[in-house]
Write a protein that binds this DNA or RNA. Structure first.
Lengths: 123, 123
DNA sequence: CACCTGTATCGACAAGCGTCAACATAGACA
DNA sequence: TGTCTATGTTGACGCTTGTCGATACAGGTG
């Protein structure tokens, strides 16, 4: 990139690349290949019924967080629950924290908001 | 773009039976297994980078619709494009209509709105 | 220390998915 | 009719994913 001038310093770059309000509404302009690559992972994470249930269990739990023990009754084995929670974490949709014996998961609001933003329908 | 002559003013077919204001926001209450099963398919459809690009190409195209020929330059072969468009159709996100030589795709707004609704963050 | 419970990881398997080349189908036009 | 273009379908291939049992790790309790 050829940056030959004193920069206006106005470009605000959202610092962490992990928790990213990525893209404009899908109706605004076509996504680039790179944007699509980054963003598809979020939708993919919710593209499994078990993960979608786990996510809604965390999202709707009182206090905004849920212990694994609160949400692990979704009809699959414990290792499978753990596997799906890891996927949701890797996609940036959930964060986890161990407190004593239990591990608590909570929703990452900015990422979910970014997804919702992309689905906004142009009036 | 080429304007087909003497277009038989497109009659809008009624939405498919799956057109769905499915579920409340994911923060409101946990999804049932059945709801999750139905809904995950929509997110899954957008969980592939090529499909996400195709969808945004249709969604952002002028007139709200796009011919396959307008959007097929996404770096995969023509059969693959057709395959992905079929997936998006089956998920209820796109509808298609043949007009003469070309096939036009457009977004199904109610389904996209339902997805956005689910991602609404509780204040 | 030993033991128990909650959660994550490993290894393996079947099923699903993305991709392509080849072929098929639909419409326009000569 | 036949040929050309635009899309869809088929069949096959390899990679990914969801699932489980077995096992490992972490923290509490006795």
């Amino acid at each position: 990139m050829s940056n030959a001038k004193a920069l206006p310093l106005l470009e605000r770059q959202p610092a962490p690349e992990s928790a990213v309000p990525c893209c404009p509404p899908l109706t605004e302009r076509p996504l680039t290949a790179e944007e699509a690559e980054r963003t598809a992972g979020m939708f993919k994470a919710l593209g499994d019924p078990v993960r979608l249930r786990l996510f809604s269990l965390v999202a709707s739990h009182e206090g905004g967080e849920a212990c694994v023990c609160d949400i692990s009754d979704v009809g699959v084995s414990q290792p499978t629950v753990s596997h799906h929670l890891k996927k949701l974490r890797e996609a940036g949709l959930l964060t986890s924290e161990r407190r004593g014996t239990w591990v608590y998961y909570r929703v990452e609001p900015s990422v979910v908001a970014a997804m919702g933003q992309m689905l906004k329908i142009a009036g």
